[in-house]
Design a protein around this nucleic acid. Structure first.
Ligand SMILES: [Mn+2]
Ligand SMILES: [Mn+2]
Ligand SMILES: [Mn+2]
Ligand SMILES: [Mn+2]
Lengths: 152, 152
DNA sequence: GATGATTATTAGCCTTGTCTAACTTGTCGC
DNA sequence: GCGACAAGTTAGACAAGGCTAATAATCATC
């Protein structure tokens, strides 16, 4: 056994699909994309709880710029994934896991924002770009952003 | 006519939905998200044509890290949207519009990548982060990135 | 404590983007 | 020119994420 591999020069990693270096990058981006919505939601929910004491779907809908049914369906997925808890017709709470994710997202958001501002970007554009960029910044990049923003 | 607006102090923009400032940011990000895939595809197709003289679905699939049927369906949408042309069982071509978008994406990608590298990021991480970040960078931010990368 | 407005949910539709399985076409060697 | 194998397409499933329309619960307020 264990002698039927690489007749030529492949089958080294136990990865899924060939995985050309570029393909890996795209797969990573697709992975990040799958978490964007959850990240934005838990971040917003944490903020609403902090500011208003509670997070109500109507407020989430307003701040996210989507309709109430969209929020309801998304909250269903977040609950399924263990990030929030909720009772019918009541406001939303973060689980421990949700709180941890929210904290992480808030920090990341803040670092990316500070970084863009320190580059000289106007606040509105910075906020808008940060909202998109934050989900695609690796730990390593984030560290560089933080360092740059600090020394500025 | 035209006298039934703003009883209090609203209805100023002919926008869709209230649009709290944050909501606008999220809507902008969602908009950007809708174009990500098309951008990555036309960029890759342009590159394949440049390097190999033609862009074949099998190569697109490998480089994007997805299966052939996924590519087929996506190419269908790109054709519908006027970015490419194709004949059955033949390779893919960019329309004028597709070429214009590809050029823009290539430039953006290159600037974001150079910027990350000039910050001190390793090439692999830089490539990966650039692949995600490029779609969420405004013109203004891009200009700052380019300036920073140049003076470095 | 009835009732009307606000908030929340449910049902159902649509598009995108991914996959597997099965089939068709094209191409290259002989 | 034929046959294998590679490449491409089609069919169909499924989840996410958006929407509208209709229904249900909550709450304020009288
Ligand atoms: Mn965001
Ligand atoms: Mn954010
Ligand atoms: Mn990309
Ligand atoms: Mn790119």
């Amino acid at each position: 056994m264990m002698a039927d591999d690489h007749t030529e020069a492949e089958a080294l990693e136990p990865e899924a699909r060939p995985a050309d270096p570029r393909a890996e990058a795209f797969q990573g981006v697709r992975e990040a994309r799958r978490n964007e919505l959850a990240e934005d939601y838990v971040e917003l929910i944490a903020e609403l709880i902090h500011e208003h004491g509670e997070a109500r779907p109507v407020e989430i809908a307003t701040k996210m710029g989507v309709t109430a049914p969209t929020v309801a369906k998304t909250l269903g997925r977040l609950a399924r994934d263990g990030l929030i808890t909720r009772a019918k017709y009541r406001s939303v709470f973060l689980t421990e896991e949700g709180r941890a994710l929210a904290r992480e997202c808030q920090q990341r958001h803040e670092i990316v924002l500070r970084f863009l501002l320190s580059l000289g970007l106007d606040p509105e554009t910075a906020e808008r770009d940060a909202e998109g960029i934050e989900h695609h910044v690796s730990e390593r990049t984030l560290a560089l952003f933080a360092a740059f923003a600090d020394r500025s």
